[in-house]
Amino acid sequence: MKEHDDELDCSGLNCPMPVLKTKLKIDKMDAGKVLRVITTDPGACNDLPAWASKVGHEILSNCEEGDKYVFYVKRGA
């Protein structure tokens, strides 16, 4: 468990919802803050990094926790 400022649980949601919900959530956060995103969608493992690199956010780490995929997304400027 890393440090984070907010959390978003996308368990059970399929493409493209984890990306869309992450975007809407992180928009409300300040630059430099970290959002912990939990998803059960294996497609998100490629989609979230692809999205983040396009919009200037940083994926600090991602890991599997049981049957879930957990991402730490740091909001860019």
């Binding site: 493409c15 493209p16 990306v19 869309l20 975007k23 809407l24 999205w51 396009k54 919009v55």
Partner: peptide, 9 residues
């Protein structure tokens, strides 16, 4: 799907 995701990007 594509429109919403592109807008999110």
């Amino acid at each position: 799907i594509l429109a919403s995701t592109a807008a999110a990007m």
